[in-house]
C-alpha cells in the first residue's frame, strides 16, 4: 500500500490511503469557494448585468445554463482522461475518480437541458427544438446514463472499472462525431428557421457573471467529487488496516455527536 521510496512526491497521492485524507481536507475549501463564487456570480447576473435588448429578462437563465452545459462536456472529457490513465497506468484511484465524476456530469447535463428548454419557450416559442446543440446535449446525457448503468450493473469492481473506462473512451471518441453529424443533420432539416446562433452581443458584465458561475460549478464539482470518492475508497480498501482505524475514528465521532445531542 504505502510506497516509502516515493517519499514526498506528489505521486503518493495516487495511493488511496494518501488521497483519502487529502480529499477530505480539500473538499470543504472547494465547497466554500463554490458558495462564494455562486453568490458573486448571481449578484453579477441579476443585479449588475443589464437587461438584454432583444430577450428581456429571460436571458438571465444563461448564468446557470451555459456553465452547466460547459461543465457537462468538460466532466465527460475528464472522465475519459481518468479512464485512459487508469487503463494505461493501472491505477485504481483513476477509475474511482471517473466513476465519482459521472453522476455530477449527468446532473449538469440535465440542468443544461432543463434550463435550455425553459429558456427556449419564451425565446423561440418551443420548449424543445431539434437544434444541434440541444440534440448533442441530449445524446451526451444518454452517454452518461450508459456509463453509470454499466458500472453499476457489474458487481466485480475490477471489471466494472475497466468496462466503464472502455465505454467512457469510446464515448469520448464519438462525442465530436455525434456533434458534427447532428450539426450536419440540423442544417439540412431546419435551415435557418430556428437559429440559435444569433447570440445577443454580450455586455462585459454578462460575460463576467457567466464566467464566475462557470468557476463556481467547477469548484462545486471538485468538492462533490472529493466527497463522493471518500466512501468509495473506504469500500474498496475495507480489507486494510488504515480503513479499519478510520472507521473506528468515524464511529467515535458519531458517538460523541450522538451523546451531546
Amino acid at each position: 500500500m504505502t510506497n516509502p521510496e516515493r517519499g514526498r512526491s506528489l505521486l503518493r497521492f495516487a495511493s488511496p490511503q494518501h488521497f483519502y485524507p487529502l480529499a477530505g481536507r480539500l473538499a470543504p475549501w472547494f465547497a466554500a469557494i463554490a458558495v462564494v463564487l455562486t453568490v458573486i456570480g448571481l449578484w453579477l447576473g441579476f443585479f449588475v448585468a443589464p437587461t438584454d435588448a432583444t430577450q428581456g429578462q429571460v436571458y438571465r437563465v444563461i448564468f446557470i445554463h451555459v456553465p452547466a452545459a460547459w461543465m457537462s462536456m468538460f466532466i465527460y472529457l475528464v472522465m475519459a482522461f481518468w479512464s485512459a490513465v487508469g487503463l494505461v497506468m493501472n491505477t485504481r484511484l483513476s477509475f474511482v475518480m471517473s466513476q465519482a465524476l459521472a453522476p455530477t456530469g449527468a446532473m449538469f447535463c440535465f440542468v443544461a437541458l432543463w434550463t435550455g428548454a425553459l429558456w427556449g419557450k419564451p425565446t423561440w416559442g418551443a420548449y424543445w427544438v431539434w437544434d444541434a446543440r440541444l440534440t448533442s446535449q441530449l445524446l451526451l446525457l444518454f452517454l452518461y446514463f450508459g456509463f453509470i448503468a454499466l458500472t453499476r450493473a457489474i458487481e466485480d469492481p475490477r471489471r466494472a472499472d475497466r468496462a466503464g473506462a472502455i465505454i467512457a473512451l469510446v464515448g469520448a471518441v464519438n462525442v465530436p462525431i455525434i456533434y458534427f453529424s447532428v450539426q450536419w443533420w440540423n442544417t439540412l432539416h431546419q435551415g435557418a428557421s430556428v437559429s440559435l446562433d444569433k447570440a445577443p452581443s454580450m455586455a462585459t458584465t454578462m460575460l463576467a457573471g457567466m464566467l464566475v458561475m462557470a468557476f463556481a460549478s467547477w469548484a462545486y464539482t471538485l468538492a462533490v467529487v472529493f466527497w463522493r470518492v471518500r466512501p468509495m475508497i473506504l469500500e474498496r480498501e475495507r480489507h486494510t488496516e488504515w480503513v479499519g482505524a478510520e472507521l473506528e475514528r468515524q464511529a467515535r465521532i458519531s458517538q460523541a455527536a450522538g451523546g451531546r445531542a
Partner: peptide
C-alpha cells in the same frame, strides 16, 4: 423578471434543488 418569472425561477429552482439533492 419582466414577466418571465416561471422560466427564470424554474431554471434556477430546479438547478439548486438538484444540487441540494446531490
Amino acid at each position: 423578471m419582466g414577466g418571465a418569472a416561471f422560466f427564470v425561477w424554474g431554471s434556477y429552482g430546479l438547478s439548486f434543488a438538484l444540487i441540494a439533492l446531490e
